[in-house]
Design a protein around this nucleic acid. Structure first.
Length: 597
RNA sequence: CGGGGAGUGGCGCAGCUUGGUUAGCGCGCCUGCUUUGGGAGCAGGAGGCCGCGGGUUCGAAUCCCGCCUCCCCGACCA
């Protein structure tokens, strides 16, 4: 068939039309738009996978959408295998249900709120515990109807104060969120464990290396939580790892082994010492010529319900605000303002918990409580106190671990030095318990006729974020190298010259009849342009048909994952087998339901 | 919200300090010819409220004021 590459008329007929490059929507870019600094994000923009429409708001163009659908299909298979059923819950929700759970007030401006035409307050969904609890209330009456696992893949909106790194932290994003409903904690434990396995399998099939770490429950509430972390410096979470025993926790909750403290040291008398110009621990230890471990510092925080908190940690350690907030059952902590600090009789930079009395809650870190004779402020500009001892000089309201684990500190389990890593949270699982179900009245009748609140769990994976992390993980300087199971197409076919176009139908035919999807570059571009775009798009198999390849006996084929550009000639008759053998994971295999345990 | 940076054809940038023809360059785009294995060559074109509004001035992309948007750092964040 003669093919006119220049008139704009259709270049092929029949089923090829589904996968012509000329049909795709979006232009590849030689340079990434300024402002995109994350390397994978740059490649997604250059390859016309995504376009930004506003801060944290993106359009997924056809290439990205094909990848997203494949990711979603993997998630559906694994969620179904874990016993889940898919449903869809509304994005626009009545504010009423969020008021009933108490989160309408507690989550803050991160939740988008507006009014409908009759002035009724509504919100955009940022997660769906309330809706699930309401559905459970209406649908579940008996213990016989439990357990359940429901999930959806659906849009979320969170008005994040600072979106960044493209899709890694967007405001609008899709998320797979799942919710388990059980009779009791034992049932929840079982589903939690099963979902954790399902998540491991999802990330394995997506070829994204993640580790599960124990995490803070945050705004979700509940008793236990794990986050699935992709280790990458562009992440915003710090996790604490022990290479020796496998301890892995989010820094928000991680504990480190305590330093050995000499408990036999005698308490010495309190002593005022003049220390001009020493408002920081560093300047204080320099001035007095003592280790920072011999000092105590005071951090002033206020809770969202207006309580003042004086937190005392050793000078060389950092306050962990999450630990402190959890300890105080506070939704939020903020630093106290200077005038507030003065109002409780303290002087910033030279602060002491001595004399605060009941004007604030005094929380002392365990290490400080056990140490003797520390140097602390004197609540007077330019003065400190030597030999401060907890218990003798002031009485704390609470003694607890409120410091952040640091790189190099001993592991609490095995004592080996801890390591910290930056990471991106791509999924999480929470044991919620009865927090939502009891507030929203979701209960069931047990075998013995007594009523109990349903026990709930919640499980999320950010699909857009997962997509972005995969692009960060699998790339080189020329583009993304998509895992075979996820690539927008199994193969990309570059077509060179009239001879290439003439052979096109036969080549694509054998691939299509083998069930392989091919993106045909029918643009008639020069070879270099086609090669560059094929590598940018990143399908696992790169094919070229041309006079040269045909004279050599077939189609040139190589793998996108290969380092060099060496290719082999594959006869057309063998092509389907060759390609299929190299994208084996791509055709999704049925997943059998897992047995429990 | 605080600190920093940037808005000029689809993308990347220059011009602005020191106001003055028709706002320029590379890539991309359109037409023609030549080309066809790693982002072609030649020729001819199209495309700009120079982010928005106000002000100064005979005259503003350029100077002044206000606002908006985007990016980075921090605060914040399931």
């Amino acid at each position: 068939m003669a093919v006119d590459r220049h008139t704009g008329s259709p270049r092929h007929t029949g089923s090829l039309g589904r996968m012509r490059m000329s049909q795709l929507f979006g232009t590849t870019l030689r340079e990434a738009p300024s402002g995109a600094e994350t390397p994978g994000y740059q490649l997604l923009l250059r390859g016309a996978f995504i376009r930004q429409l506003g801060q944290g708001i993106f359009a997924y163009l056809p290439l990205a959408w094909r990848v997203m659908r494949r990711i979603e299909d993997i998630m559906r298979e694994e969620m179904d295998a874990a016993g889940g059923v898919e449903l869809s819950m509304p994005v626009v929700q009545p504010a009423e249900i969020w008021k009933r759970s108490g989160r309408y007030e507690s989550v803050g401006p991160e939740m988008a709120r507006f009014s409908d035409r009759r002035d009724r307050p509504v919100v955009l969904a940022m997660t769906n515990e309330e809706v699930v609890a309401m559905l459970a209330e209406s649908e579940i009456q008996s213990w016989r109807q439990l357990p359940k696992l429901v999930y959806q893949i659906q849009l979320k909106f969170r008005d994040d104060p600072r979106p960044r790194a493209g899709l890694i932290r967007a405001r609008e994003f899709t998320m797979k969120d799942a919710y388990s409903l059980d009779r009791d904690d034992a049932g929840l434990d079982l589903q939690y464990k099963r979902l954790r396995q399902a998540y491991d399998e999802i990330f394995r099939r997506c070829e994204l290396p993640v580790i599960a770490v124990a995490a803070d429950v945050g705004m979700m509430g509940g008793t236990e939580a794990h986050e699935f972390m992709y280790l990458n410096p562009l992440g915003e979470d710090t996790i604490v790892l022990c290479d020796s025993c496998g301890y892995a926790q989010n820094r928000q909750v991680a504990r480190a082994g305590r330093p050995v403290i000499d408990a036999t040291e005698q308490s010495r008398p309190l002593e005022r010492v003049e220390t001009p110009d020493t408002p920081t621990i560093a300047s204080l230890s320099d001035f007095l010529g003592i280790e920072q471990t011999r000092t105590a510092k005071v951090v002033f925080m206020a809770t969202d319900d207006g309580r003042f908190v004086v937190a005392v940690v050793r000078g060389d350690m950092q306050l962990n605000e999450t630990k402190l907030a959890n300890l105080l059952h506070a939704a939020e902590l903020r630093p106290m303002r200077t005038e507030e600090i003065e109002s409780i009789g303290c002087v910033a930079g030279y602060a002491s918990p001595i004399g605060v009395g009941d004007r604030a809650t005094v929380v002392v870190d365990e290490v400080v409580a056990e140490s003797r004779n520390l140097v602390a402020g004197a609540n007077e500009e330019g003065w400190h106190l030597r030999n401060v001892n907890v218990g003798r000089d002031f009485t704390p309201d609470v003694v607890a671990d409120i410091t952040a684990a640091e790189e190099g500190q001993p592991c609490i389990d095995c004592g080996a030095p801890l390591r910290t890593e930056r990471s991106v949270e791509v999924g999480n699982i929470f044991k919620l318990g009865t927090r939502y179900t009891s507030l929203l009245g979701a209960a069931y009748l047990a075998e013995d006729g007594t009523e109990h609140p349903i026990v709930m769990g919640s499980y999320g994976i950010g699909t857009g974020r997962l997509f972005a992390c995969i692009a960060e993980e699998h790339r080189d300087e020329r583009g993304v190298r998509w895992p075979a199971a996820l690539a927008p197409f199994a193969a990309c076919l570059c077509v060179i010259g009239d001879e290439g176009f003439a052979a096109l139908d036969g080549v694509v035919g054998v691939l299509e009849s083998a069930g392989l999807d091919v993106l045909v570059d029918d643009r008639g571009e020069r070879p270099g342009v086609q090669f560059a775009d094929a590598e940018l798009i990143g399908s696992p198999v790169l094919l070229t048909v041309s006079r040269r390849s045909l004279e050599s006996g077939g189609v040139e084929a190589r793998l996108r994952s290969a380092e060099g550009r060496d290719s082999t000639i594959v006869p057309v008759a063998d092509l389907a087998t060759w390609v299929a053998g190299r994208v084996g994971d791509r055709r999704l295999t049925p997943v059998r339901p897992r047995s429990d345990g």
